[in-house]
């Protein structure tokens, strides 16, 4: 590292922190998955607070514990879950941007509300692009600080620019702040092998509660509940689109997320509305989950509104 390098020094890596950007697209046919922020909406807010482009890279801090020392002066923004962030020991509420300068210590504690925080910086973090993206995907060994898919490690240096003067600190209006507490309803657009599941299985899906399982990760959210009857189809693997809901033989649904395998061989009920998956990313294991149906038109309308709002 040169003397003039500016950015953030990783003092403690915490539980699991990743460099992410909008994701890696265009290589799914080779088996390369997308990556990208699990809560894309919170990530979009962080970049908006900083007037960054929507694909600027940021850090996804899962469950907290990350500690950084500032080696520059710049504006940062923190959105998403409230992981009890302190700056030099002073508690900082999320959903706003603020000024930091050399020597400041950022420290994420444990989750107070939500599960994943997004730390954005003016202009984004500068790490190498691999296949057009900085998104860290461990299973593909792509992206991140060294480009090989590793999570942040103690001693890593996250390069970022320097701002000559303090910008205007901003805060997101309260009405836009999502509520991460309480149970969550996932809206499902029936699709794929929807007709192979019986009517009574569909009724069961809509009526019974599930719980978010501890084995959930960036590949998929695993739910547990009274098992669903999964049809035996003897099918070949087929491409998995984002938020597809697979039901393996054990009857416990899995929602395929950002780091999903590009192919899957289990019967699928359809796909969850992406906005609901963003909210799901902020839920801790044990959260009560319910399903509700949604039509394609309504789902697309909601997504259009979201994309237009953030200029995506």
């Amino acid at each position: 590292m040169s003397q003039s390098a500016t950015g953030f020094q990783v003092i403690r890596k915490g539980f699991f922190s990743l460099v992410q950007d909008a994701g890696r697209f265009g290589y799914e046919h080779l088996g390369v998955t997308n990556g990208g922020p699990m809560d894309a909406m919170a990530a979009s807010w962080a970049n908006r607070l900083l007037d960054n482009s929507s694909d600027a890279s940021l850090i996804e801090v899962t469950a907290g514990g990350l500690e950084l020392e500032v080696r520059t002066q710049t504006m940062i923004a923190v959105t998403g879950g409230d992981l009890n962030l302190t700056v030099n020991g002073e508690p900082q509420a999320p959903w706003r941007s603020f000024w930091v300068s050399t020597g400041d210590r950022l420290r994420f504690g444990t989750p107070r509300l939500g599960f994943r925080a997004y730390l954005g910086v003016q202009g984004g973090f500068q790490v190498p692009e691999v296949l057009g993206s900085m998104a860290t995907v461990k299973r593909d060994k792509l992206g991140g600080v060294c480009g090989r898919g590793e999570a942040l490690q103690d001693g890593d240096f996250l390069a970022s620019g320097i701002l000559p003067e303090e910008g205007i600190a901003r805060q997101i209006p309260e009405r836009f702040m999502p509520d991460y507490s309480g149970p969550l309803t996932l809206h499902i657009i029936p699709g794929y092998q929807q007709h192979a599941f019986s009517k009574s299985t569909w009724q069961q899906l809509m009526q019974q509660p599930f719980e978010l399982d501890t084995r959930s990760d960036r590949m998929g959210a695993r739910l547990s509940g009274s098992p669903l009857q999964s049809p035996t189809l003897g099918m070949y693997s087929e491409p998995l689109s984002y938020a597809a809901v697979q039901v393996p033989a054990d009857g416990q649904p899995i929602i395929m997320l950002n780091d999903r395998q590009t192919l899957g061989g289990y019967p699928k009920l359809g796909n969850i509305l992406p906005l609901d998956c963003f909210a799901l990313a902020q839920r801790q294991p044990g959260t009560k989950i319910r399903f509700a149906p949604i039509g394609l038109m309504t789902a697309q309308q909601q997504m259009r509104r979201y994309l237009r709002f953030f200029g995506l």
């Binding site: 657009i189 029936p190 699709g191 794929y192 092998q193 929807q194 087929e238 491409p239 689109s241 984002y242 938020a243 597809a244 359809g270 796909n271 509305l273 992406p274 394609l296 789902a299 697309q300 997504m303």
Partner: peptide, 12 residues
């Protein structure tokens, strides 16, 4: 043709 979410179709 099968629906595969808000932005995809699966052709079988």
């Amino acid at each position: 043709f099968e629906l595969a979410g808000v932005n995809a179709i699966l052709v079988r």
